[in-house]
């Protein structure tokens, strides 16, 4: 998906904006595409988006900050999302989370010191009949436990 690789950032962001600007309500698609390309929404994107869509920088920032998905700093190289919602709690999700976070020595939204792993909470992945549910780098995992998460992360640098 990183077709912008190699280009100067501003140019890559421009390309993304240009390719999506024609949509009705283009802001969220643009933000998603930028985050897919750069793993976060770089500060430099705000004025570019603002200019293209006739929004102030503050308005663009307001939208970015409203949504849990958008980040303004890059995440760790690997992202673990653990479901915290009720159905997963009913089968021990709190214990799994405590153990994963404890082992990594971080809290929710935290990234390990070496920049390797970020752990994010998620409120339901639609895997509620096979919880505790998790997603490691986009791969869904059911009936998970801390050991399984550990195995998924093993060998990832």
């Amino acid at each position: 998906m990183r077709q912008t690789e190699g280009k100067p950032q501003a140019e890559g962001i421009h390309d993304i904006i240009r390719s999506l600007q024609h949509l009705e309500g283009p802001l969220l698609p643009i933000l998603h595409a930028i985050q897919t390309a750069y793993d976060h929404i770089p500060e430099a994107a705000l004025p570019l988006i603002g200019d293209a869509l006739n929004l102030t920088r503050a308005e663009v920032h307001g939208v970015i900050s409203f949504y849990h998905d958008f980040r303004t700093t890059p995440a760790g190289r690997h992202v673990v999302r653990l479901c915290r919602a009720e159905a997963c709690q009913a089968v021990g999700a709190n214990g799994v989370a405590a153990s994963v976070l404890g082992t990594l020595g971080i809290d929710w939204h935290g990234t390990t010191g070496d920049g390797r792993i970020t752990v994010e909470p998620v409120y339901c992945l639609g895997l509620c009949a096979c919880g505790p549910a998790a997603m490691v780098n986009g791969k869904v995992i059911g009936r998970t436990d801390a050991a399984r998460i550990g195995r998924e992360l093993e060998g990832l640098t």
């Binding site: 309500g25 409203f66 949504y67 849990h68 958008f70 998620v122």
Partner: peptide
């Protein structure tokens, strides 16, 4: 298709409409 951005409240229909329009999902 449009993709949400991790806000539960955007399931509320008017919040969803704001989100579709590219606004905060208020």
């Amino acid at each position: 298709i449009r993709i949400g951005a991790g806000a539960y409240v955007c399931g509320e229909e008017t919040s969803l409409l704001n989100s579709l329009e590219g606004k905060r999902g208020v």
